[in-house]
Design a protein around this nucleic acid. Structure first.
Length: 270
DNA sequence: AAGCTGTCCTGAAAGC
DNA sequence: TGCTTTCAGGACAGCT
């Protein structure tokens, strides 16, 4: 499933090539998670100024608005020079004079949404409460600690919620907590400052490494050239219930928090 | 305000 | 073998 690293790798794979392109049309297939929010004709003729990322959203800046893309859990984007007929899981084609950006998303949790501006109600609704960007300078100990201070919920669920720090999905949440030696059920507000700093560093290192490695975690992930990740990042605890902890050999445990699996080492994480 | 739960969708894997 | 059931996952809506 695309988490922040996969989204960033996708962005890098086509952003430079599509910047400056002129949109001809947006062709939609089966409905995605949210409606587009504008007529395709609104987009036609607009130039693509660039592509940014916020959390797991890709923000495509247009001359008059922003086109937001989300890959959900099974989405991928490819920029095709020559687009053949869409397959059964191809649900959006952004046709431009530099090629066709095609969204492939079997489970259709993804979305393409038009926002008339960065401050529009649509943009605010989707982006307004997103937390700190973990790979940017603003992700400081002070800011992170401040975000966790008021939260009594388990740290794992606070990480997933995305309103303190964005882009940490289910897999990386387990991995980062393992690296930091923090038990996933611990109340976020009850983690000491030194351990918050360790968690901050763990989040940065696990995400930055995954970006470097070209996105990792999903078998069917591919960037906009259609290249799959050359390797899988090996997880220390995720999906390893019963297997020995790489640090202390204790059996990895699996629990469910908020209907999501969490994996951790009962010895190393407290 | 913060924290729960339900929901969307479909492929893969497990169960019968 | 083939059918049915269960599960996974991001993130919003809506309720407490």
């Amino acid at each position: 499933m695309p988490e922040l690293p996969e989204v960033e790798v996708t962005r890098r794979s086509f952003a430079d090539r599509i910047a400056g392109a002129t949109i001809r049309a947006l062709q939609l297939g089966k409905p995605l998670r949210w409606p587009l929010g504008c007529e395709s004709i609104t987009l036609a003729g607009q130039r693509v100024l660039g592509v940014r990322r916020r959390g797991k959203y890709l923000l495509m800046d247009l001359e008059r608005g922003v086109l937001l893309w989300h890959l959900g859990m099974s989405g991928s984007l490819r920029l095709l020079e020559v687009a053949g007929a869409p397959g059964p899981h191809d649900h959006a084609d952004l046709v431009t004079d530099r090629g066709v950006l095609r969204l492939h998303d079997p489970r259709r949790f993804g979305a393409v949404v038009f926002a008339p501006g960065q401050d529009s109600a649509v943009a605010q609704r989707l982006l307004g409460r997103l937390g700190l960007e973990p790979l940017e300078a603003g992700f400081t100990l002070a800011a992170f600690a401040d975000g966790l201070r008021q939260r009594r919920a388990p740290i794992k669920q606070v990480l997933l919620a995305g309103d303190v720090v964005v882009g940490v999905g289910n897999i990386y949440a387990s991995e980062a907590l393992f690296l930091a030696g923090i038990h996933p059920t611990r109340a976020a507000s009850r983690i000491g400052r030194e351990r918050v700093e360790r968690l901050r560093q763990a989040i940065v290192s696990v995400l930055a490494r995954a970006v470097e490695l070209g996105g990792s975690t999903l078998r069917d992930f591919s960037n906009a050239q259609g290249e799959t990740g050359h390797f899988q990042l090996s997880a220390s605890v995720y999906d390893r219930e019963g297997q020995p902890c790489p640090r202390c050999r204790a059996a990895i445990r699996r629990i469910v928090q908020g209907q999501r699996s969490t994996y951790y080492c009962p010895q190393c994480q407290t």
